[in-house]
Design a protein around this nucleic acid. Structure first.
Length: 332
DNA sequence: CGTATTTGACCTGCGC
DNA sequence: GCGCAGGTCAAATACG
């Protein structure tokens, strides 16, 4: 199928402010199967930080992002600071955390979200505890951190990766560690957004309160623990919610081969795309001082692209766990 | 034939 | 302890 709506609003990761800042509109014609004119907006601003890198987690660190966004630089450990999920600091900490341990594949060097007939995308993230833990972690985060640390030590000792052995080697009484996740909200007619990596579907489940199933994908590259889940909003079936979990342990196939998706070289395509996104985010941040403001969810919705305003955050499933942390969480 | 998808069963965690 | 829902496994099936 060819995309009919090619707008892609790409909101910056996680929570509050950034989520509403970017409204990116690529040229029409991008599809996931055919050669496409991937125009990534009229601007090509060289940012200090590329989203590609953010997403790949290869270079991004909390400090870098914090600097890039003019935020107070605090340690990622602030992520789980009690008392709310809405602070910009926490937001950045999420990203920093992601930089340490995960890589949403959508931002891989070889491609980006708009390979599919998307029309809008935003993204958010959750902490290491995972989506459903996002709420939970507020109450028992010390315990959570302890468990996570325990898990990490254990994993290091065993030299294994958690996600692959979750069921088999998991000891009773220990919470399983979950990688941090990034959620992308994309308006698209296709469920599975082509992000440059190769994915294998390993499961599908019906989602409570939603007529649309949730699909589970795993990166097909050997030893790569990255997973993603894809589901549609039942409120707006055009909205696809993609949640990435884990960090790719390899190069993006399209980066390496450059042929899988008929993409231009990463340097010509996704990098500028990502850079644009980041720059737009940063520009808006700088202009609005929105980071300093207390965030009103309504303001956010107002700032969101129409498609995302329509979305208004489904009250189920992934978004319930992820998005509210920056929309609803902004409210005291 | 190799790889990807489908799908029912199973496992796990959590709330009641 | 039980039931529910999310997440994963793995056999069967489809596809190129």
């Amino acid at each position: 199928m060819s995309g009919d709506q090619e707008r892609s609003h790409f909101s910056f990761p996680s929570h509050d402010e950034l989520s509403s800042l970017v409204s990116w509109k690529p040229a029409a014609g991008a599809t996931d199967s055919a050669g496409d004119p991937r125009g990534f907006g009229p601007r090509a601003v060289p940012p200090p930080v590329s989203l590609t890198d953010v997403l790949r987690g290869s270079m991004m660190d909390y400090g870098a992002l914090a600097r890039a966004f003019g935020l107070p630089c605090s340690a990622p450990s602030d992520v789980l600071a009690p008392g709310g999920m809405a602070s910009s600091r926490e937001l950045m900490a999420d990203v920093g955390n992601a930089g340490n341990s995960m890589t949403p594949s959508s931002g891989c060097g070889g491609s980006a979200t708009p390979m599919t007939p998307n029309s809008s995308t935003s993204w958010s993230s959750t902490e290491a505890a995972g989506e459903e833990d996002a709420e939970r972690c507020k109450k028992d985060e010390p315990k959570q951190e302890e468990e996570v640390e325990k898990q990490r030590v254990k994993v290091e000792e065993e030299g294994g990766d958690t996600s692959e052995k979750v069921n088999k080697s998991k000891k009773k009484g220990e919470k399983r560690q979950r990688d941090p996740r990034f959620a992308f909200v994309t308006e698209s007619e296709v469920d599975h957004l082509d992000d440059g990596y190769r994915w294998r579907k390993y499961g599908q489940k019906a989602v409570k309160n939603s007529p649309y199933p949730r699909s589970y994908y795993r990166c097909t590259t050997q030893k790569c623990p990255v997973k993603k889940r894809v589901e549609r909003s039942y409120q707006n079936p055009r909205i696809v919610i993609t949640t990435y979990e884990g960090k790719h342990a390899h190069e993006c196939p399209t980066t390496v081969r450059g042929s899988t998706h008929l993409l231009p070289p990463p340097s010509a395509m996704s990098t500028s795309f990502c850079q644009n996104l980041v720059m737009q985010q940063m520009n808006q941040l700088n202009n609005d001082n929105s980071l300093q403001a207390n965030i009103n969810p309504n303001v956010y919705l107002a700032n969101l692209p129409p498609s995302l305003q329509q979305l208004q955050l489904p009250d189920y499933g992934l978004l319930q766990d992820i998005i509210p942390s920056f929309i609803h969480g902004g409210q005291p």
